[in-house]
Structures are given as C-alpha cells and as structure tokens.
C-alpha cells in the first residue's frame, strides 16, 4: 500500500503545514503538540504548539538550530516522549501503538550496532525482538535482504569494528528497514560522517526511498541535505521550539548530487539560509 502511494507521490498535493487539516493521505499528523519539561522555576517549554502533516510516501526534513527540539519532536512521533498537550497519530494509531505494530523505524546519529554481532545479525536484531516467532534462518534471510537493499550485501559477516562509519550507518538503516516500518524517523543520521560519505549516503537514501516507498522524516542541520533529499522542509525556531516556516522543494526526482547547481536548488538554499538565521531569535510562547 505504501508502495502505491509512493509511485503516486508526485501527485500528492503540497500542503501548508500550519493551516492544513489532517488529510486522508497523511501518514503522520501532529496537532497542537507541546512538550514541557521540568517544573517550577525549571519549567521549560521545549516544543510549542506544533502542527505537522507528513503525507504517506513523502520525504520530509526538519531543520533548525541546535537545541530547538528536533530530536524531541522526532521522539514524540516515535512514541518515546509523551507530549504535554496535543494529539499525534501515525497511520491512525497513537505513536507508541504504531511502534508496537512495527510501523516506526528509527535511525540515530550513532549507528549503535552491537559490537559482538556481525552485520547481518545486527540488521535483524530489532526484528528478532519485535517478532520472537521468527526462526534464526528467517532472521538471517531478512537481515541479508536488507543489507542487499542498503548496498552492503557483501559485508554480511563483517563485525562492526571492521566497517567504516558510513557502512555502520547503512547497517543501522537496514536494521530499521527489517521491521518493514511505514515510516523511517531519522535523527541526523549522517551528522557524524565526512562530507563525501554524507553525499553518497544521501544519494543511497533517496534510492532506498524510491525502491521501498517508505515515508521518511529526516532531522538534519545541513541545508544542502534538506533541499537535496526532501519534498518538504520544516524550519524550526528556538525558545520555544516551533515550526516557523514550511517550504516545498519542487525539484523533480530522481535527484543527482549535481542538483546543487540547479537554479531552483540555489534559490531554495538561500531562502533556507535566511530562515535559519531568523530561527535563532527566540519567539513568544503562544
């Protein structure tokens, strides 16, 4: 079902996040989500009144200054942080329920592979917890298929300390894809990689997206990455964390690395730069 939606994703109407009502095609919708932490003098509004819609099969980026709450928002969508107010639904379920139904795949900046397991066992590690009925052979097979998908089919028996940073992150993506989730939530997945590896990884992620039709929400602090990869970019401001602008990226797919020379790319890039400069200015909590 996700695949069909992905094939049609270019026909999905572009949505202005702030005003949009949850449409039938939205896989993720957040309405009026706020997160406050601490109490008394230490009470801190981390996210303020977030409205976010992610159409099924879409590729959406969240960009904003450090500490603005991107990771927290992603954790709310993953059901790992309970919002103080507001409602979130992922494919019609509360996020924690969606996670239990294996609809959510998570990728963090650190690949966090288990150093005592080889690549293929790492790739099937989460699946083995999520579905204890699967046999060892079935887990291996699934792990291998996912490694093939992320371009690491030959490295199945390598241990994590034999893999480069980029390869480790590929295994981490494979590990989440093994769950066959509806959405991949990625928190600065390429943040620790060098510039060249970053570009290759971005390109691979686009290929994986095209082939699997997954919905992807990517947290990044790289403007290039946001414009290169996503259909839509949400810019977050700080203090409190809120969405200050939503930009559509009307560049056609498939996108190559050379897209950075496209005039539209440059225009969007500059627009985002200006927005990010504004995003550091604290706002008034609503």
């Amino acid at each position: 079902m996700a695949l069909a939606a992905a094939r049609a994703r270019n026909d999905v109407p572009t949505l202005q996040a702030v005003a949009s009502v949850a449409a039938a095609s939205d896989l993720i919708s957040a309405r009026g989500v706020s997160v406050t932490m601490g109490s008394g003098r230490h009470r801190q509004v981390i996210l303020d009144n977030i409205d976010l819609s992610v159409p099924e099969g879409s590729f959406v980026s969240l960009i904003g200054p450090s500490g603005c709450g991107k990771s927290t928002l992603l954790k709310v969508l993953a059901g790992l942080v309970e919002p103080s107010t507001g409602r979130v639904s992922v494919a019609g379920h509360a996020p924690a329920d969606a996670a239990r139904r294996r609809m959510i795949g998570l990728v963090f900046q650190d690949a966090n592979l288990l150093p005592w397991k080889n690549a293929v066992d790492n790739a099937s590690m989460l699946l083995s917890i999520a579905d204890p009925t699967l046999s060892k052979a079935a887990l291996r097979e699934r792990g291998q298929a996912m490694l093939d998908l992320v371009g690491l089919g030959d490295a199945a028996h390598k241990m994590p300390n034999e893999l480069s940073g980029g390869m480790r992150q590929r295994v981490s993506i494979a590990r989440s894809l093994a769950l066959d989730p509806a959405v991949l939530l990625m928190d600065e997945p390429f943040g620790a990689l060098d510039a060249i590896t970053r570009d290759t990884m971005g390109q691979s992620l686009l290929e994986i997206w095209e082939r699997t039709g997954k919905t992807i929400v990517l947290v990044t602090h790289s403007i290039d990455e946001a414009v290169h990869l996503s259909k839509q970019v949400h810019v977050l401001g700080i203090k409190p964390g809120r969405i200050i602008e939503t930009l559509d990226v009307p560049l056609p797919y498939p996108r190559e690395v050379s897209i950075v020379e496209h005039p539209d790319f440059i225009r969007l890039h500059n627009g985002l730069r200006a927005l990010l400069r504004d995003s550091h200015r604290p706002g008034q909590p609503s």
Binding site: K75, G79, I104, L106, F108, Q109, N112, L126, I129, D187
Partner: peptide, 26 residues
C-alpha cells in the same frame, strides 16, 4: 547508549530483554 535503549523500547523490548541482550553483553 540511551538511543540504543530507545531503539529497543520502540519495538516493545521488555526490561529483561534489554538487560540480557544489550546490557549484559555490553
């Protein structure tokens, strides 16, 4: 790493599972 624990929690791993499969070998 806390994000590894988050990852385990996201697929509904129990405390004992996290203990036996992650914390002890780690």
């Amino acid at each position: 790493d806390r994000s590894l624990v988050s990852l385990m929690n996201s697929v509904g791993a129990s405390r004992s599972q996290i203990l036996l499969r992650i914390r002890v070998p780690h």
